[in-house]
């Protein structure tokens, strides 16, 4: 990076930090900026004569009952002074720290706009690690436990994590096969014997090929060709000639055919074919232009949401 660019980067950082600090101090002095408040809810359960557990009043719960407290965040615009003074709402330190971390991580990522820097790299490393870990967790609790362990060891899983599960069907031995396939797949991580993972991968590839074949033939080939065959003479509800609908139907047909001709590379694009293909390119360009417009719209919405978080949830400016 050139010296002048480094200097301007330093200047940008200084301006950003000064403006940020002023806004923060002003906001914190006038509102509950950067604070998260919660309300508590008591849960208590008592065992009845049948051995079942029923909800009971938390105030009357004894040491033999099961009881706990859960907390829900209160949006700032719903938080009243009465709630605070009565003790109904209290500030949550863990969530307040979390809110600040969210804001700091957002700024860390945005800092990449000024240039690559350690803050961005740190945030990037965190998102990779936490996301991968999260996926493992969700895989375990949402799929592995109910759909595999629950079939192989139903009684154990029922007594452990899924009491609502029906364990009466007993062990379903057929599920040993996917379990073995998973073990074989993970062999790829081993220094030797990785070739065994080709078996589950082959299973994966075969099933995917079968799926894709069915899905694409039916929905994207047959149904689309069918949808492209439309009447080129349109009439209105009263049976009279509908000029706009007819024109649109003609354009739609010509555009579809010409764009398909462009993708037909077995014939040289010369003469009539060449001219048709060129027309096809024009329609494709209009398609790409529309896609670009929609893509921009999407990206800006994502940025707006992040800035709403910074200005609203964190700084309480809106």
């Amino acid at each position: 990076m050139s010296e002048s660019k480094q200097q301007s980067n330093g200047l940008i950082w200084a301006v950003v930090f000064i403006i940020g600090a002023i806004m923060l101090v002003w906001s914190m002095s006038t509102s509950r900026t950067g604070q998260v408040w919660v309300t508590a809810e008591q849960h208590a359960f008592v065992q009845n004569a049948d051995g079942d557990w029923a909800k009971t009043d938390a105030a009357s719960a004894t040491s033999n009952d099961i009881a706990w407290t859960s907390y829900s965040s209160v949006p700032d615009n719903e938080l009243t002074d009465e709630m605070i003074s009565s003790g109904d709402a209290k500030m949550s330190w863990s969530r307040t720290i979390g809110l600040w971390l969210s804001a700091i991580f957002t700024l860390f990522i945005l800092s990449f706009l000024v240039g690559d820097n350690p803050a961005y790299k740190f945030a990037e490393a965190m998102v990779v690690g936490t996301s991968a870990g999260y996926v493992m967790v969700i895989g375990l609790w949402d799929v592995f436990v109910p759909n595999l362990l629950g079939k192989l060891f139903p009684v154990m899983v029922q007594n452990w994590a899924l009491p609502g599960m029906d364990a009466s069907v007993g062990t379903q031995l057929l599920y040993i096969i996917p379990a073995i396939l998973i073990v074989m797949l993970l062999m790829q991580l081993m220094p030797a014997g990785g070739w065994i993972s080709r078996w589950p991968i082959a299973f994966f590839i075969g099933i995917t090929a079968g799926y894709r074949m069915i899905g694409y033939v039916e929905a994207d080939l047959v149904a689309q060709i069918k949808a492209a065959i439309i009447p080129l003479y349109e009439t209105g509800a009263d049976g009279t000639f509908a000029i706009w609908d007819t024109m649109n139907a003609c354009i739609l047909t010509i555009a579809t055919l010409s764009a398909m001709v462009y993708f037909f590379f077995s014939i040289e694009h010369k003469g009539f074919v060449g001219k048709t293909a060129r027309l096809g390119i024009w329609f494709l360009m209009i398609t790409f232009g529309a896609s670009f417009g929609y893509t921009v719209m999407g990206r800006i919405a994502l940025l707006a949401q992040r800035l709403e978080f910074l200005f609203g949830d964190w700084l309480h400016l809106i």
Partner: peptide
Amino acid sequence: CTGVQAPQMYPYIPEQLAGVLGAIK
């Protein structure tokens, strides 16, 4: 669906898809 996806869904309308909301607008 997202803005990126929305234009790709139009050929499915109306037979395979009754309607599509493309992005925030």
